Each structure stands twice: as structure tokens, then as C-alpha cells.
Simulated assay, not measured.
Amino acid sequence: MTVLIDPPLWPAHGTVFSHLVSDTSLEELHGFAAAAGIPDRAFDGDHYDVAQRHFERLVAAGATPVGGKELVRRLTASGLRIPARERPSKLLPALRERWTRLLPQDPGLGEDLLLRWGEPHRNYHSRVHLLNVLEALDLLLPGSGLPPEQHRPLLLAAWFHDAVYRGIPGQDEEDSALLAERGLTALPTSEAAETARLVRLTTRHDPAPDDLAGQLLCDADLSVLAWPAPRYARYLTAVRADYAHVSDADFARGRAAVVEQLLALDPLFHSPLARELWLEAARGNLHGELEAFRRTRTL
């Protein structure tokens, strides 16, 4: 057991709080918290916030007390610590600025989208994912050859592509596209239609060979597959949390099918820069997932 707890020093709600973490796995942390009666709402991405009154009880249950600096050091070394910029609650100013640059005439639509991306049932499909896709497009767009008049529909498609998320593959993308068609009334009809078309492409990530905008959006959406190992592990944990209602065996079979579908995509990434940046790492991560499923015999 490697669950750690630091001293209750962090003030909030009329008391002080400790951080409860694991330096091994989130599964271990969640199991310990559940057994100790710590509610799910106390979890904040890589730790549980626990009030002072629980400190001695959690230590007695097996949590190891350490200083705050030691807790952060061990959490960081484990790869489980989430940087501040990746926390959904910290992203609103940066995302609002991006929306203002993109569509300043409709701030209300931007706020509606941010509320959707911040819905409490989202784990992977959150504001963090939205910003990651937009930042990936920041890398891919310069020098891509996409005409400037096509940039806005592409960026809007990034904002809308998971705006509706209920965990229903295919239907979520269609509903998100319909939301774009209804919401972008201030734009020329052709731009709204192009945005919706691009959103629908994220269902299968199979743009046509001459569809440069579609290729860029799909590449940006799948850039997560190339994340370094600790960050990729957090991505997998978040995806599993999005499907918490599914049994482990059913999730393993479904996730393995998704991984095999991704590995079968030819190409997995379309733009030359995306292939250079992400292809090798993405294939390594995907093959690693399949191998892990086979080792644990969950397929």
C-alpha cells in the first residue's frame, strides 16, 4: 500500500484539508478512498481533498503521513500528478480568449460551449481535451496549405466536435454537428455547414485524401495517442472513468476494439507534420495497450 497523506494545512469551508494520493496508481487510490468512505466528489484529478477530521482515521487505515513537499515529489515522480494547466477548472481564461479571437460577435455561444465542456460527468472529454485539440491545430495549421478562409470553420469544428457528450459513439458526433448548425446562425450558411461536416468526420477519423481541413481536425483529435507514458496513462484512466458504468470485461473488449480500429487506420495521421510528431509514439502506445489487455487476459 503506497497511499500518502500530507498534514491538514489547506484552509477551506471552515476547516483545513489534507491531500490523499497514491504514488502507484489511481486504482489503488480510488479503492482506498472507497473503503474509507471518502466520497467521489472529493477527488480532484490526482488526489482526494480530505478534511482534518478524517486525518487520524485515514492514517490508521494505512495511509502514510508525509510532508507536503515529499507528497508532491513522490506524486510527480510517479507520473500521476496533473499539471495545473491541465486541470479543467484552470482553463477558462485561456479558452475564453481563444473564443473571443475566433468569434467575438457571439460570446454567449462560447460560454454555452464552455459549460458543455465542463459538465461534471466528463473525464477525458473535458476542457482539457478541447484545449489540447486547439493547441495541436496551432502546430499543424501554419504551413499546412489550408486556405485562410477555411481556418475558422476548422477551429469551430474543434470547439463543437465533442460539445454533446453522453458516451454514445456516433450519436454524440451527430448531435454535436446539429448543435453547430443550430448555433452558428451569425455565420454564412456555408461556414456553418462546413463546421458541421468536419464534426461528423470525428466519428470515424477517415477524411478523404483531398480533404485537408478534415485531415487536420482528425490529426489534432488523435494527437492524444502520442502522449508520453505518464500522461497517456492519465488519458486511459480518464477514458475508463467516462465508461464507469461498464464492467471491466466489457470495457476491455470495447476498448481493445477501438485500439484495433485505430491501428487499422491507414494512415493513422494524415498531415506530414502530424506523422513526424506523433505516429511512432502513437503506435507504440496503442500496441502497448493491446499487449496489456492480453497479459491480463481481459480479452
Rank of each mutant, 00 (worst) to 15 (best):
P7T: 00
A12K: 15
T15H: 07
V21L: 01
V21F: 01
D23H: 04
T24N: 07
T24S: 13
L26I: 09
A34H: 12
A36K: 02
G37A: 11
P39C: 01
D40H: 12
R41L: 07
R41K: 13
D44W: 06
G45D: 00
D46I: 00
H54N: 08
F55P: 06
A63D: 00
P65E: 03
G68R: 13
E70W: 10
L71M: 03
R73T: 08
A77M: 12
L80S: 02
P83W: 10
E86L: 12
P88G: 07
S89N: 11
S89K: 13
S89F: 11
L92W: 08
T100Q: 15
T100P: 04
T100E: 15
R101M: 00
L102E: 12
G110H: 11
G110L: 10
D112A: 15
L113N: 02
L113S: 03
G118L: 04
G118W: 06
E119W: 11
E119Q: 13
P120V: 08
N123R: 15
H125Q: 11
H125Y: 09
H125D: 02
S126L: 02
S126A: 12
L130Q: 02
E135H: 01
L137P: 05
L146D: 09
P147D: 04
P147Q: 10
E149W: 12
E149M: 13
R152C: 07
L154V: 05
L154D: 04
L154G: 01
L155E: 11
A157T: 09
W159F: 07
F160P: 07
D162M: 09
A163D: 01
P169E: 07
E174T: 15
L178C: 08
A180V: 11
A186H: 14
P188L: 10
A193F: 05
A196T: 11
A196L: 07
L201Y: 00
L201P: 02
D206P: 05
A208L: 15
D210L: 08
L212H: 02
D219R: 09
D221T: 13
V224S: 14
A229I: 04
P230D: 04
R231F: 00
R231N: 01
Y235A: 02
D242Y: 00
Y243T: 05
H245L: 12
V246Y: 03
S247P: 04
D248I: 13
G254P: 03
G254W: 00
A257Q: 14
A257T: 14
E260Y: 06
Q261A: 15
P272Y: 09
L273Y: 10
L273E: 05
R275F: 12
W278N: 02
W278P: 07
A281K: 12
R283Q: 14
N285M: 00
G288M: 11
E289I: 14
